[in-house]
Amino acid sequence: MSNTGLNLMGALKTRMHWHQSRQKLLAENVSNADTPRFKPHDLKAPSPAGGGLVLAQTSPLHLGPAGSVNGFDPRDPKRFETTPSGNSVNLEDEMLKVAQNQSDYQLAASLYSKGLGLMKIAIGKGR
C-alpha cells in the first residue's frame, strides 16, 4: 500500500498552517498602514517535500521561470512608494494578498476535506 495519499494530506495540512500564519501577518500589515516607519512583511511559501523541479536554462536565449522576464517578477513588486513618515504599506496590494490567501486556504481546506472523505470510504465508514 502506498502512502502517497498520506503525503498529500500532510502537504495540504502544512499549506493550511502556512496560509493561517500568512493571514495573520497580512492583517498586521493592514492594521499598521498608518504606523510611522512600518515595513510590511510576508512569508515565503513552503517548499514541496521533494524540493520541486528545477528548470535548466541551457541557452541564454531561453526564457526564465514562468512569470519572470529578465529578472522581473510581476508577482513580487518591489516597494518603491514610501510615505513621508517612512511607512511603505500599500493597502491595495495587501488586500489583494489577503483575498488571494483566503481563496488559496479555502481550496486547500476543501481538498483536505475531500481527501478525508475518500479515506473514510476506503476503510468502509463513509456515507
Rank of each mutant, 00 (worst) to 15 (best):
S21D: 15
S21R: 12
S21L: 12
R22G: 06
R22T: 05
R22P: 01
Q23V: 00
Q23D: 02
Q23I: 01
Q23N: 09
K24S: 08
K24W: 04
K24D: 14
K24A: 03
L25N: 04
L25T: 12
L25M: 15
L26N: 08
A27K: 12
A27C: 02
A27E: 03
E28A: 15
N29F: 08
N29M: 05
V30F: 02
V30G: 09
S31D: 02
S31I: 03
N32H: 08
N32A: 05
N32D: 00
A33E: 10
A33P: 00
D34L: 06
D34P: 00
T35W: 05
T35L: 10
T35R: 11
P36C: 08
P36S: 13
R37V: 01
F38A: 13
K39V: 10
K39A: 13
P40S: 02
P40H: 05
P40W: 00
P40T: 03
H41A: 15
D42K: 11
D42M: 07
D42C: 03
L43F: 10
L43S: 12
A45V: 11
A45T: 13
S47P: 00
S47M: 14
P48A: 13
P48T: 11
A49K: 11
A49N: 04
A49M: 06
G50M: 01
G50Q: 07
G50Y: 00
G51V: 07
G51S: 10
G51N: 02
L53F: 06
L53E: 07
L53S: 10
L53Q: 15
V54L: 05
L55Q: 10
L55F: 12
L55W: 02
L55N: 07
A56C: 06
A56W: 01
Q57Y: 00
S59W: 00
P60G: 11
L61M: 08
H62L: 07
H62S: 14
H62W: 02
G64D: 03
G64V: 06
P65M: 04
G67P: 04
G67I: 10
G67C: 07
G67M: 10
S68T: 15
V69S: 12
V69T: 11
V69N: 04
V69E: 02
G71S: 14
G71M: 06
F72S: 04
F72H: 05
P74F: 14
P74I: 12
P74A: 12
R75W: 02
R75C: 05
D76M: 13
P77W: 13
P77E: 12
K78V: 01
K78N: 01
R79I: 09
R79H: 04
R79V: 07
F80K: 04
F80V: 08
E81N: 13
T82E: 13
T82C: 09
T82G: 09
T82H: 07
T83D: 01
P84T: 11
P84H: 11
S85I: 02
S85P: 01
S85Y: 03
S85G: 04
G86L: 07
G86V: 01
G86C: 06
G86K: 08
G86D: 04
N87A: 07
N87I: 05
